[in-house]
Design a binder for these strands. Structure first.
Lengths: 246, 246
DNA sequence: ACTCCGAACGTTCTAGAACCAGTC
DNA sequence: GACTGGTTCTAGAACGTTCGGAGT
């Protein structure tokens, strides 16, 4: 695709080299840029010969499209391009007209659209941050959930054990009350166990009531929606995606 | 603020009305726009008299800044503005130089920046979604964490109760072994209690060992960073914020 | 060969962005 | 010394034109 320079490049190269136009447009002394000495004559006489218009601004627009830069001078208009030099016609084929970068990969390549770009960058950064936090939170949540499940099963086992203690104690108690006449130690023990009026047991049953409202199975606890990480990662500016639809 | 028209408006009004420039710049026949008949002469002779430059493009830039529109004509350059008319100098004060709308309310007013705007809108939508999910997750996490804490305190109470059961049983057991000669029921009971070789107890102690690695205090469990909701809400395009720093 | 289509190029008008200058 | 307007260079956007290649 580097076979021929575009017509525009050929034309400006041609007119800059044209000796009859030396008083209007020519190379600079250094030969690394070209100078338009008579802007009016250039617009009115030269431009129509090479292009379909005589608007200097259109000419300049084309130069900018090809990444020529205007050089700051007094009373003269000078443009340069690193690949546009005197006696270097073979370099022309490497100069390319820039198609709007915004449309090509929707990354505007320059300072342009600064404000919007800042915004987009902020959003990207924020998105990445939130992504990370969400993933972290998910992990935390799941570990806590597992721990929770473990605690619940432990509690259930404690309960079972306590039931067995109780029946065991009942056995002892029954045995004691049946086989023995009133002994002080037996009474103390029975009182200590059967008396539900002590503070600890009250707390306990209160806690247990609350606990009974808690779902006991992992499935009953609302799971983390997996759509979070999917969406957020899809939005974290992967290279290949084609305009995600939200 | 509508007292005086800006100097630019005064100057173009003045030069359009200047009879000595009639062959270069003048009103159109209808008097609702002005025409530049000789672009070169205008640039080289007229512009420097009124402005600090002789660039036609700078002049056009100003016209566009004041919302003048170029009229499509042959061989002539014509501009018009709905408030710029012959013999209507008093209308000039209502013409305003447009400051970049992007900066004013960071909502570009036209079709311009389409792609970037799409992106920003996508990010806004995504951000709101993720915000919601994060808040939801935080809520879930905190309830699970509370529940966890409750379970842990319950477990501790169960443990205490079990210790008391054990000492109580020990008392019974001691009492039984001391005061009674070998009875079958007593032996069974004592075996059931002291025998740690049964399956349930093994599970139990295993669980307990795992549990001991689990932090018992809320403070030891890593809290959710509150920065999530702050940042994300700050990024959700509130109207008043001045360029948040991430 | 022919035509249709799409991509790149060309022309025009307008806006963005950086910088400068006057003014309050 | 911040704010508004002026100047300069470059880019965006719309639209027209050309050119080459796929499908017939």
């Amino acid at each position: 695709k580097n076979k021929h320079p575009t017509t525009f490049l050929c034309k400006i190269y041609e007119m800059v080299n044209e000796e009859s136009l030396e008083n209007i447009i020519s190379w600079t002394a250094e030969g690394d840029s070209f100078i338009i000495k008579d802007c009016s004559a250039f617009s009115e006489q030269v431009l129509p010969k090479y292009f379909r218009h005589n608007n200097f601004s259109s000419f300049v627009r084309q130069l900018n499209m090809y990444d020529f830069k205007k050089i700051k001078t007094e009373h003269n208009i000078t443009f340069s391009h690193r690949l546009f030099k005197k006696n270097k016609r073979n370099l022309l084929k490497y100069i390319h007209r820039q198609t709007s970068e915004l449309y090509v990969d929707n990354k505007p390549k320059k300072k342009h659209n600064q404000k919007l770009n800042e915004k987009v960058n902020e959003y990207e950064a924020e998105q990445n941050k939130v992504d990370f936090l969400v993933k972290h939170l998910e992990g935390e949540y799941n570990t806590v959930l597992e721990r929770n499940q473990k605690l619940i099963s432990m509690l259930i086992q404690y309960r079972k054990r306590e039931e067995r203690f109780q029946s065991l104690l009942a056995t002892y108690s029954e045995y004691a009350t049946c086989k023995l006449t009133s002994k002080s130690s037996s009474q103390e023990a029975e009182q200590e166990f059967t008396g539900n009026s002590d503070l600890e047991s009250e707390e306990m049953s209160a806690s247990w009531n609350e606990f009974s409202e808690v779902p006991l199975k992992l499935e009953q606890i609302q799971p983390i929606t997996p759509s979070v990480s999917e969406n957020s990662s899809a939005c974290s500016l992967g290279e290949g995606q084609k305009k995600p639809k939200y």
